[in-house]
């Protein structure tokens, strides 16, 4: 799996009067792991959801390997694509939700093979073989026939990661992947993400786990009030923050 180049330019998004994103610029290089940290309400999750067009933006754009997500550019206007085309482009981006959002009525294996077969049109046998491989990679080879509610939170999140990877995405987005987990289950999920970090897939992780960001991320991005305040290597942003707001936030969470 080769990673994609993710470029975000001048992203604006309002919910009614609330401006969630106020001009976000960010570049994530192929294979890079970017950790986005920041206080709640700073726009981290909105940014992530805007990247794969779960939220429509008001201004600005996101592109993956030069291809715009959700829009086609004609001169100075961005035209929203048809739903079919958006869905096709989305299969290059994996998304892991805070609350897993596994399909409870399907088995673990059915959860993982659904998109490769019905979104990408790959043959079932191939999709199932690859799904079993992915499940083995996240340590759940023996739970392929279980249903999500029969699994622990940590196991469910690992299945969700396998489901996202089954699309062979160029980028995987993680929206606070461990926030809904009991403390003792956090490590098993972080371990899976850590292993993924070495494989060349571009990862964008919104997280509260500062220690994890320090260990795994190539770039730490600090967001507040809808803009990127500061970004750089973890030792710079986390240990010698240039901005007083970053400093104040880190003092609170550490």
């Amino acid at each position: 799996m080769s990673g994609g180049l993710l470029e975000i330019r001048g992203l604006h998004k309002s919910f009614g009067l609330l401006e969630a994103l106020r001009g976000v610029d960010l570049t994530v290089r192929p294979g890079e792991v970017a950790a986005i940290i920041g206080p709640s309400g700073s726009g981290k999750s909105t940014l992530l959801r805007a990247i794969n067009h779960l939220e429509k933006v008001d201004r600005g754009f996101v592109s993956l390997d030069g291809e715009l997500i959700g829009y086609a550019r004609r001169g100075s206007t961005l035209r929203e694509l048809t739903e079919r085309e958006i869905l096709r482009r989305r299969t290059r981006i994996g998304f892991v939700f805070q609350n897993f959002n596994l399909f409870p009525h399907l088995t673990v294996l059915e959860n993982v093979v659904e998109a490769p077969i019905y979104a990408q049109g790959r043959p079932r046998a191939e999709a199932e073989a690859e799904a079993r491989e992915l499940l083995a990679r996240v340590g759940l080879a023996d739970r392929a026939d279980a249903r999500p509610r029969q699994l622990s939170g940590g196991q469910q999140q690992r299945v969700a990661i396998a489901r996202a990877l089954a699309l062979r995405p160029a980028v995987v987005l993680f929206d606070e992947p461990t926030s809904a987990l009991d403390p003792e289950l956090v490590d098993e999920v972080l371990q899976v993400i850590k292993e993924l970090a070495g494989t060349g897939t571009t990862l964008v992780v919104v997280t509260h786990e500062v220690a994890f960001a320090r260990e795994v991320a190539d770039t730490v991005v600090f967001m507040d009030e809808g803009v990127v305040i500061e970004q750089g290597p973890p030792e710079q942003v986390l240990d010698r923050p240039a901005n007083p707001r970053t400093k104040a936030f880190l003092e609170k969470v550490l």
Binding site: L54, R90, Y118, A119
Partner: peptide
């Protein structure tokens, strides 16, 4: 749950498949 709609959409499943299967 709204999350089920979002998960189905984020996987790029065609609309009719989202409705019928998920």
């Amino acid at each position: 749950d709204q999350g089920q709609h979002e998960a189905a959409a984020s996987l790029g499943l065609p609309r009719h498949r989202q409705v019928r299967r998920i």
